[in-house]
Amino acid sequence: MTKSPVSTSWRTRDDIASRPWGGTLREYDLFKELVVGVVVVGLLVLGLSAVFSSPDDPSVTLKSWAQAQPADFVATATAELGGTSGTAGYGPPYNSTPDASQKLGPIDLQSLSGVRLPIDTATDFVISPLQTLPTAPAAIDEWTKASDAQHAAWTTAYADALGKAPDNDPAKVPPGDYGPVPALTGALLAMAQQGTLDPVLSAKGSFYNTDYKASILFLGDGSYFPGLADAQHLTGDQWGMMNETGNYPGQSWLWLFSALYQVEPFKSSPNADVLVVFSMVILTLLLTLVPFIPGLRSLPRRIPVHRLIWRDYYKHR
């Protein structure tokens, strides 16, 4: 007897898979299974929670950063003033830095959304917070009256001097033509160390706030915050998106998303994020639409895992 090929098509046809089952039945209690499932899963959840609890590492503040690594804070504030930080050169949705957006071939979705969350790092991260002080530093006047070229010259000179100073310590920087930059960054450091910068930076003088992007972007421009993440194996090159602080399981279902960042051509591409997202969308669509894709939908027939799943059925044929 020749067997007809087993179909893995999604179509309804005149076959056993498409007709209501007319064969032997076994007793089954849907509600009982649901209740047993809820009880067993409940015991698992309660047991795991009681034994392992959940992680909760305290958040980092601008205050804790300024106190722990004042040199890094001042170097970052200088980069924000000079427009050379990561946020300053990010592009949309924060600013319109030329050629900063990621592209998928000719498609530039990042620019298409526009500058919808505008951030001027010098003004928003340094000057405006300082203006909220009871006695704003006089250096603000000198800064605001100077040209962009002068701003760049002062911040470049000060950033270079900080880089060469022992321990990058602002107190050990030799005299130079830095304009108001040392005074501004020093005042911002003092403000942060006292804890008054944290509420001001995000709330911008308002009472209510839910948007913490300014604080998070400023923190991320430094090396203190990423350094803490690195120590907790959370950075991108450490499969960070699927990890959690400590030894807890994180979003392990993002393993493929994280894996793509570890391999070429994504790893070294300036468009890595958009390429990874695009690839994941394609792969997800492939899996969702697998019933319609000849070849892929035949895999269950070619690799007979079903023989294991339905071994009782096959045994009693």
Partner: peptide, 8 residues
């Protein structure tokens, strides 16, 4: 692995 999309 069951090709559970079969039969409509």
């Amino acid at each position: 692995w069951m090709a559970a999309w079969r039969g409509g």
